[in-house]
Design a protein around this nucleic acid. Structure first.
Lengths: 348, 348
DNA sequence: CTGAAAGCGCTTACAG
DNA sequence: CTGAAAGCGCTTACAG
């Protein structure tokens, strides 16, 4: 157990000029050679690259970026990267950005505007090339405009910001929730509750609207207390189960905000001695990998996470490469995946 | 739907000298004022800061960092940030780093050495101040030494790298797995299987060793085919359930690599018409938030994720601040949390 | 308490 | 195909 010091003993910093002097060429030539410029003779290039590798040269991106004003950094900020819904989006963004050798700088904002602002500020200070964001609740269009005006192009995912004229990629939530609700109605359910979510995001409003549309089109009554709003976590779903089961109207089915809420709810239903999919039907939303192996396997709505991430990343890369891109929303069409958590209603 | 161009129309870049000229002071004074140096008169400082805010000045960290060779960036690389085990560690790292106003740059390596190397390289190029890593399987000590020698101090979490003389924070896996195994033995189980994990990581070897120790200390037989190695996911646990249930020796309990595997296994047990915690006892590892709301609530080993993250971050920050720090491993002592997924054995 | 000047390590016209 | 020189936007001795 010996003590370690802050810095290793680096003999002395190796830089372009170190190589240039050693090989008797100019720094311009070294710079061009290392970036495979056709302006440099093959033999010169090979000599330079070989020598650079040999002495362990490390390219200084700060210096380069200061000069070129391109950093190779793309920021990504979402509510919570540990949420599997965002996780799946992030994976496809990562794949796309890796391909273009962009470094991606990730952050959570936990729906806190000031955390989001701090992050955007960091990106501006680092001279990031662009940002992909799922905006925090209450993000004003002005915040988006500010970063854009400072040379940081933005692309939105999952949520839109009214008044912000940038590309947005998200699922068609109204349509998707209607799919789930209609599925329950077609099984014979009449008393259907919606659990989770909030009116404060575009997603929240849209999903509730989809539920309302489906209920009303079927001529079913919608009671205000049939909506149990709340966080979008397993824990919240678990806790909502008590409120749900104690409901005097004995609802027979629940349309859940997402798979996490649905899985939590199903756990709560089990704890109460009932069987989800038999005694109570439950639908999720997102079709996380986990949905298929839940018990019972969860009927849910596939929300195109991969697609959202892929298209958002590509659109941003296009903007970086000077390709013109359309502002405005692009909706991915969701699909219903029927599994075992839904069935015909039984009277309790 | 109008087209958006790559860059907003930024009138012209505002920099220190813009402010200096406007206010008739030097850039040195502006620089010092913005960083609250006591060298600057209060009134001068206030004038400068006020004006900077007014015209929307954005600090250029690349330029500053080029000059000072400190970037304010700390890299964090783990197998998979979406894995809830790492997620909990990351959250506490985030909290610590936020407090010190360090930007944290996150990456997955998915246990691919070259992805890890690319990331470390990026950190070196960006002049990152330090790195916290859960090293990919097979990471040679040489890789750690290289980054350290290039001025990037490293701290390891969750896994150690033999021969690398840097601080390591992880749970005491041998002890923890022995806790779980002993718990099952004390309930009366004799045929206990270990599911998930691999011999290729220090964690994998240690956890298996803990299981072996407990079994042997109790004088119980350990058969080679009582180990079902595999990935550390729900999916893997789910799939292992078939192999487990088909076992000719009819094991009555399973020590799982982690909570994810345990939850997947329990789902598989349900699917087979058996009840975990009654017909088969199952233990997890990590005590994720999810463990407490699983069905049945999972008996598991708390692994000190928060603690690991917090101490790793603090140790790195100490190194950055020139405080001497001890290399070598620090083990967090795990605790057994008994819930409903374990009980006395029943003969099948 | 403030200013003039050098320099961090690159890249990019420009000249040859 | 290669080199000399300017400049990206900061910070830091140094001088006053």
């Amino acid at each position: 157990m010996k003590t370690v010091s802050r810095r290793g003993s680096l003999a002395q910093k190796i830089k372009l000029s170190t190589i240039a002097e050693a090989l008797g060429v100019s720094t311009a030539t070294v710079s061009l050679a290392l970036r495979d410029s056709p302006l440099v003779a093959d033999s010169t290039r090979d000599r330079i690259k070989e020598y650079a590798r040999e002495i362990g040269y490390i390219y200084n991106r700060r210096a380069a970026s200061l000069r070129t004003s391109r950093s190779g950094i793309v920021g990504v900020v979402v509510h919570d990267i540990m949420n599997p819904f965002f996780a799946e989006i992030l994976r496809s963004i990562e794949t796309e950005l890796d391909r273009s050798r962009q470094t991606f700088l990730l952050s959570n904002h936990y729906d806190k505007l000031d955390k989001q602002r701090t992050f955007l500020d960091t990106l501006l200070q680092l001279g990031a090339d662009g940002v992909i964001m799922s905006p925090a609740i209450g993000t004003p269009a002005e915040d988006i405009r500010m970063v854009e005006e400072n040379g940081l192009p933005a692309v939105l995912i999952a949520r839109s910001v009214p008044g912000a004229d940038v590309p947005v990629f998200r699922g068609d939530d109204t349509f998707g929730t209607a799919l789930a609700t209609n599925h329950l109605i077609s099984l014979g359910h009449r008393r259907i509750v919606m659990i989770g979510g909030t009116d404060q995001t575009s997603t929240g409003r849209d999903r509730y609207q989809g539920y309302l549309n489906a209920m009303q089109n079927a001529g079913l009554e919608v009671r205000p207390d049939w909506r149990i709003p709340g966080p979008r976590t397993k824990q919240a779903g678990f806790e909502a189960s008590q409120q749900f089961l104690a409901h005097k109207d004995k609802p027979t089915a629940a349309v859940c905000w997402n798979d996490l809420v649905a899985i939590g709810l199903m756990n709560g239903i089990y704890r109460a001695g009932l069987v989800p999919g038999v005694d109570i039907s439950v639908t999720g939303y997102d079709d996380l990998e986990e949905a298929a192996i839940a018990t019972p396997a969860l009927t849910t709505v596939w929300n195109g996470q991969r697609e959202v991430g892929r298209r958002a990343a590509r659109t941003l890369l296009d903007r970086l490469n000077g390709i013109e891109v359309h502002g405005g929303q692009e909706l991915i069409r969701p699909e219903l995946h029927v599994r075992q958590s839904t069935g015909k209603p039984v009277e309790r």
